[in-house]
Simulated scan of single mutants.
Amino acid sequence: MTVASERLQTARAIGRVLGTVEGRDFLVHNGHVSGTPIIACEWDTSLDEVIQNLRAANPQTAQAAVAIRRGEGLHWMGISPSSASDAGKDGDVHAGSTMGMLYQALQESGLSLRVTNLSVARAMVLA
């Protein structure tokens, strides 16, 4: 399957979520603010690609909801910009890491993701 057809399937899955009151409530309950971009990707999409899409969608800040499709299901996570107080915590995430690997690691650890340098796809995981 091509990347375009994979992304189309992901966009349709997001549309199904956004098309229901329950889906919109889920996003609001998890901190999504109207107007914040939703970045569509698949389980094996690289962090670098997601950061590039974020940079194109929201160049002023590094904030977005990310919908990661795996099979027929969607997994959601937020990406937000780092602040000065975030410096020095835990380690960097390699730009080639897949979103699935990142999502799974964050779910298991309870940590959060902050973008430290949008221009070079740098991110760090925070405690």
Rank of each mutant, 00 (worst) to 15 (best):
V3F: 11
A4P: 06
R7V: 03
L8K: 13
L8N: 07
Q9H: 12
T10G: 05
A11R: 02
R12N: 10
R12D: 15
A13G: 10
G15H: 01
G15A: 14
R16I: 07
R16D: 13
V17P: 01
L18T: 09
L18Y: 03
G19C: 13
V21F: 13
V21L: 14
E22Y: 10
G23E: 08
G23K: 03
G23T: 02
R24Y: 00
R24F: 02
D25E: 10
D25V: 13
F26Q: 13
V28P: 05
V28I: 07
N30C: 02
N30L: 03
G31P: 04
H32E: 06
V33L: 07
S34K: 04
G35K: 00
G35T: 07
P37N: 06
P37L: 01
I39Y: 02
I39R: 00
I39Q: 00
C41R: 00
C41G: 02
E42C: 09
W43D: 04
D44P: 04
T45R: 03
T45A: 02
S46W: 01
L47A: 09
L47V: 10
D48S: 11
E49W: 01
V50Q: 06
I51P: 04
I51W: 02
Q52L: 08
Q52D: 12
Q52V: 13
L54S: 01
R55S: 12
R55I: 06
R55K: 14
A56E: 12
N58T: 03
Q60D: 15
Q60W: 05
Q60F: 15
A64F: 03
I68E: 03
R69M: 07
R70M: 06
R70P: 02
G73P: 05
W76H: 01
M77L: 15
G78T: 11
S80P: 03
P81V: 06
S82E: 08
S83D: 12
S83C: 09
S83L: 13
A84N: 02
S85W: 06
S85N: 03
S85V: 12
A87I: 10
A87K: 07
A87E: 04
G88E: 11
K89E: 12
D90S: 11
D90K: 02
D90N: 08
D92M: 15
V93Y: 01
V93M: 09
V93A: 05
H94C: 08
A95F: 08
S97Y: 14
T98R: 01
T98M: 09
T98I: 06
M99Y: 01
M99A: 06
M99R: 01
Y103T: 06
Q104F: 08
Q104D: 08
L106P: 10
Q107C: 15
S109L: 11
S109D: 07
S109R: 05
S109H: 08
G110V: 04
L111K: 12
L111D: 12
L111E: 15
S112D: 12
L113Q: 05
V115R: 00
T116E: 07
N117E: 15
L118N: 14
S119M: 13
S119N: 15
V120T: 15
V120I: 14
A123H: 09
M124F: 03
M124A: 13
M124Q: 12
M124Y: 13
M124S: 14
L126C: 14
A127H: 04
A127V: 09
